[in-house]
């Protein structure tokens, strides 16, 4: 029972990270109808910026942890937003209106490019930082097992939930959110009402990138290690989360993220840790067979 509780805490933390990345997939899919396979790489870049920024701050002698974390978060958000913007501008916008597979292939190319770019600049070796946010709150203590939630886990989950709430408000309550939903439903009509569709799409990519950057920073804090290949794994899992929740649906992406995180944690705990990815993707396959539109997705009804 204690073990189960501990794994739930770990799973939710992991799920929060997947959820943040999944939002980027689902938003981009909603507005331009393509899977941005380079999104995982944006997350990876966010993690690298975190490592670099933490190291620099350490050298500069910024030791107060909340300030350091805040500075790193903002830096990573700014840089990844620029990357998100550039990726859309260079790899996708010229192909808009081309056949459906073109931007998809371009996305895969962009993903490979970014991986190699980081590998060349930063080297292929694993980078690590000292643990920055340390300490834990013990919840239950029995003789041989202690259930604890670490401060970093609390930080990840609260920050994620805060971001998800403010993001939902952004989409449902603001001018940008209205423009975003309008473009999602009918781009030509939105343009005729005076909405700059290109700008809205750019903003969508930047917001997705910002959320991925937060995920990247959090993972760096959580595990303390990054390498140029982490974007692929996390990206594909977050993509699975977006599909599981129903691609195009924002609450779906968040829910899917938490579910994938929990499944992974439980499977690693009770079965074999080597097979955790197989478990995750098996669930994805089952969902696709029995509920192709995902848990919260809205089925595409074709009018006959």
């Amino acid at each position: 029972m204690e073990y189960f509780l501990q794994q739930t805490i770990n799973g939710i933390t992991l799920g929060a990270v997947y959820g943040l990345i999944a939002i980027g997939y689902t938003m981009v899919y909603g507005i331009v109808g393509m899977i941005n396979f380079a999104h995982g790489e944006i997350y990876m870049i966010g993690a690298f910026i975190a490592v670099i920024a933490f190291t620099l701050l350490g050298m500069m002698g910024v030791t107060w942890v909340p300030a350091a974390v805040l500075i790193v978060l903002v830096t990573a958000m700014l840089f990844t937003a620029a990357y998100g913007w550039a990726v859309e501008r260079i790899a996708y916008r010229p192909l808009r209106g081309s056949f459906r597979l073109a931007p998809l292939i371009s996305a895969i190319g962009m993903s490979i490019f970014l991986q190699n770019y980081v590998q060349l600049l930063q080297g292929a070796r694993v980078k690590s930082i000292q643990p920055i946010v340390t300490g834990a709150i013990p919840l239950i203590e029995t003789g041989h097992f202690q259930v604890a939630v670490t401060y970093i886990q609390i930080l990840i989950v609260t920050l994620t939930i805060a971001l998800m709430i403010s993001f939902s408000l952004l989409i449902t309550r603001t001018r940008f959110g209205r423009a975003q939903r309008a473009c999602e439903q009918d781009q030509t009509m939105a343009a005729l009402l005076g909405i700059d569709v290109d700008r809205t799409i750019s903003m969508t990519f930047m917001i997705g990138a910002i959320l991925a950057a937060v995920a990247g920073v959090m993972v760096t804090l959580y595990y303390g290690v990054v390498d140029f290949f982490i974007g692929f794994q996390a990206g594909i899992k977050a993509f699975a989360a977006a599909v599981l929740g129903g691609i195009g649906s924002l609450p779906g992406a968040m829910l899917g993220g938490f579910l994938i995180g929990l499944v992974e944690a439980y499977w690693s705990a009770y079965f074999s840790i080597e097979y955790k990815d197989i478990a995750t993707f098996s669930i994805l396959i089952l969902v696709l067979i029995f509920r192709p539109s995902g848990l919260l997705g809205r089925p595409d009804v074709e009018k006959v």
């Binding site: 001018r175 423009a179 439903q185 939105a190 009402l193 005076g194």
Partner: peptide
């Protein structure tokens, strides 16, 4: 999938 009111407000985006 936007409300009637939102349809009118989104038109005042500019």
């Amino acid at each position: 999938r936007m409300t009637v009111l939102e349809n009118l407000i989104v038109a005042q985006h500019n």
